[in-house]
């Protein structure tokens, strides 16, 4: 058993899990074209969930803050991007890729800007008074989530809100008998770019070094002369902006959104953060990819099991690794 475990670690350890899951699904699904479509859908979903979850994981790990209000950034990001895209429908319908892209950039920028400002406000006004008090954190952040949901309801109404897609992201790439939705490919690549950016920030910069150290031992970082509380505002704003961007991309993926979007996604986001390991960006990515793939494969193989798939995944992983796949603290 020990030998198997050593060989597994040598080959890549937990990083192999999405590949193993994909291989098992390939055998069970049987049809390669369906498998490719489901895999791309799963990877795209995973990347969008990763964007929503990465900030929460860092905030959880760095400041021990349980922020149930994180979903508000996802919801607002989705609705703000949808509104901007709706306002620029002329650009979206144009055959010009430049105008299409400009509309998309404007929508995503508006969502990110909102995330940054709202993140600053949320941390300063709502989170700061309840540091080190988990019960109050849960109560106040859940309250904020309800207020945010009701605000969206007041501004955008309760009926499903339609999200227009840029013309150049409509349709599918057809390769042989394999069909890959262009938007899914785009979501995957954008998510991957965000991950690389975050990875470089955390592993190749001094601020990243401080954040990683702060996740492990906040008190010690302060004893070395750094104000973790000030650093935390920046991390919180970044996490909120990523969640808003994730929401904006999810809106384009779903094309019909409701005010409950954030709360619905929050369950998945928390599962990803927990199975990935608190405070770990690599773990969050791994968790998000597993959740995305599992969700799509099981949705195809056993639709009745699809809703429970993430819970089953979480239970299985926590039984195996109680601290998650790649915990930030060793």
């Amino acid at each position: 058993m020990e030998q198997v475990s050593k060989t597994f670690e040598k080959l890549g350890g937990v990083n192999l899990l999405p590949i193993i899951l994909g291989a098992v699904a390939f055998v069970l699904i049987g049809a390669p074209s369906s498998w490719v479509t489901l895999t791309v859908a799963g990877l795209a979903m995973g990347m969008m969930v990763f964007l929503m979850a990465s900030g929460l994981s860092l905030v959880f790990g760095l400041m021990d803050v349980l922020n149930f209000g994180h979903s508000a950034f996802v919801s607002f990001g989705a609705f703000i991007a949808a509104t901007v895209l709706g306002g620029l429908s002329g650009w979206l319908a144009s055959d010009s890729i430049a105008l299409n892209a400009a509309a998309l950039v404007a929508a995503y920028s508006a969502a990110i800007l909102f995330g940054l400002v709202a993140g600053w406000f949320f941390e300063t006004v709502i989170i700061r008074p309840v540091y080190r008090d988990h019960l109050r954190q849960i109560l106040i952040t859940m309250g904020a989530m309800i207020v945010a949901e009701q605000t969206i309801l007041a501004f955008w109404g309760g009926t499903p809100y339609s999200v227009p897609r840029p013309h150049f992201l409509e349709g599918s790439w057809i390769i042989g008998d394999v069909s890959i939705e262009i938007y899914r490919g785009f979501a995957f690549l954008l998510g991957l770019a965000a991950f690389i950016g975050l990875y470089v920030l955390l592993n190749r910069t001094r601020i990243g070094l401080l954040i990683r150290a702060g996740v492990e031992d906040r008190e010690m970082v302060e004893s070395l002369g750094f104000r973790v509380d000030r650093m935390f505002i920046g991390v919180f704003m970044l996490g909120s902006a990523l969640a808003a961007l994730g929401g904006a991309m999810w809106a384009g993926y779903e094309t019909l959104i409701t005010p409950a979007l954030g709360a619905e996604m929050m369950i998945i986001v928390f599962i990803v953060v927990i199975i990935g390991g608190l405070g770990s960006i690599e773990g969050t990515l791994l968790g998000a990819l597993l959740v995305g793939l599992m969700s799509n494969y099981l949705g195809f193989l056993a639709p009745k099991m699809a809703l429970a798939s993430n819970m089953i995944l979480m239970v299985a992983i926590l039984l195996w690794r109680p601290n998650g796949l790649r915990p930030a603290v060793k």
Partner: peptide, 13 residues
């Protein structure tokens, strides 16, 4: 900081 290298621990200080 266990996940940082020896050198990274020193640089941080």
């Amino acid at each position: 900081f266990g996940t940082l290298t020896v050198d990274e621990n020193l640089v941080l200080a």
